[in-house]
Design a binder for these strands. Structure first.
Lengths: 225, 225
DNA sequence: CGGGCGCTTGACGGACCTCAATTTTTGTGG
DNA sequence: CCACAAAAATTGAGGTCCGTCAAGCGCCCG
């Protein structure tokens, strides 16, 4: 069972776009050249229960989407980094909250592709379908984490991160231990212990809290099923 | 960690449609009137690694999609019942296996809507997008299960099932205990114990293995977060 | 009737959570 | 640049929920 201690983010603010401003950005492409908005650490980009208006693309930084049960238990569904799209997880009403993990620059793309409309660009819709399908695949891959032991989860996470950040063997985690724990369904103490265990086994080095060095990637890959 | 004991299904067979036969079913609607194919209990409908050719709609019966780690640990991603669409969980290659839980009648719909094509029906693609989005929402809702304790998981499952089967307070489970366990990330012993516990607390009755009667739905709803 | 399969029940152990204290890191202002 | 406070992470001890293993029961169907 996940931690009950997971805390809600400290900063809560409205998403930075007026409803009318970004109209038509999305009409011809999902990748228009529009100036991105900036978000501070822990700032909310959209919240659970809000209507879906945009999809988002990360220019720089890192974003998490999370769902919180009414007793405070928190599940992080995904982390998104530069180049990723997010905000596809709902059709009409957001069922999770998106927050900046680090200061981030994000483009909002108007999602003008509802079943009701008819004059929409077919290429845009196909692109949207593809993105949604990829998001579904990612979500399902993440679910498999819960089949695994604590150590396997942490190793899987490190490997996923080194791939996502396009670095190898040496990278900086954008997020803190609590975020990792809530992503993996563990407590922060367990995450900490597993990292220490891997470090003692010479599999990784942790020179600073955020920095990870994978000393033996083949062996790490062998540790996960 | 999930059970290592989860067994692969006994029956393995090829999907029942020749590649060429079902062409164009999907060109104008996702709900064409085409005779459904029948599948026996535990028969495979599509397998992990196969290319995505169709989406499927259940006429009657029940289907599970599952992913198996190379050491045998099995995760059931979803159960589908009459009226549900499935097979949307992948863009190009199936990342899970679909099997009939009970004898089922299933329609195959040709998925001729890839980015490369251009003459596809926009209404069809929008329908597909909507279905994919709903599948994504379902998957994310299912993930929240792993935040919960064993009892909460079982209660959530029973409530989900009574809703999905469009019955209330009294229904027959299509699946056995092992399937429930693999869906909830528990062992069959724990599922059994939780059901017994709920029965002793007068929350439910279990007149036969498959039959469940919810005696106190409000109280059950109150047990889950 | 009897064999096999699915489910239940019990005893036990272990992996991870909980709680609490300490250490390390981060952030801020002089 | 350093000092101090606050936040984050580590570490340890102890407990618990659920997995593991094993036996037993009931049901279905030949």
């Amino acid at each position: 069972m996940a931690s009950y201690k997971s805390l809600r983010p400290l900063v809560k603010s409205c998403a930075g776009w007026p409803p009318s401003a970004a109209s038509r950005w999305f009409s011809n492409s999902v990748d228009p050249m529009v100036a991105p908005a900036s978000f501070a650490r822990n700032e909310e980009i959209f919240g659970e229960g809000e209507p879906v208006k945009y999809i988002f693309k990360i220019e720089s930084g890192c974003v998490r989407t999370c769902t919180t049960l009414n007793d405070g238990r928190r599940q992080i569904g995904a982390f998104y980094v530069a180049g990723d799209y997010f905000g596809l997880e709902a059709v009409n009403i957001h069922n999770s909250t998106a927050e900046a993990v680090t200061p981030s620059k994000i483009r909002a793309l108007n999602r003008s592709t509802r079943m009701s409309g008819s004059a929409d660009d077919i290429v845009t819709i196909k692109h949207l379908l593809n993105l949604t399908g990829m998001e579904l695949e990612r979500t399902q891959r993440h679910n498999l984490i819960f089949l695994k032991s604590a150590r396997e989860r942490v190793v899987s996470f490190l490997i996923e991160m080194t791939e996502r950040l396009h670095e190898k063997n040496d990278f900086n985690l954008p997020m803190g231990r609590q975020d990792i724990a809530d992503y993996l369904g563990l407590t922060i103490e367990t995450v900490s212990r597993m990292l220490k265990q891997l470090e003692c086994g010479a599999m990784i080095s942790v020179p600073t809290n955020r920095r990870i060095v994978l000393n033996n990637l083949p062996a790490l890959n062998h540790m996960i099923a």
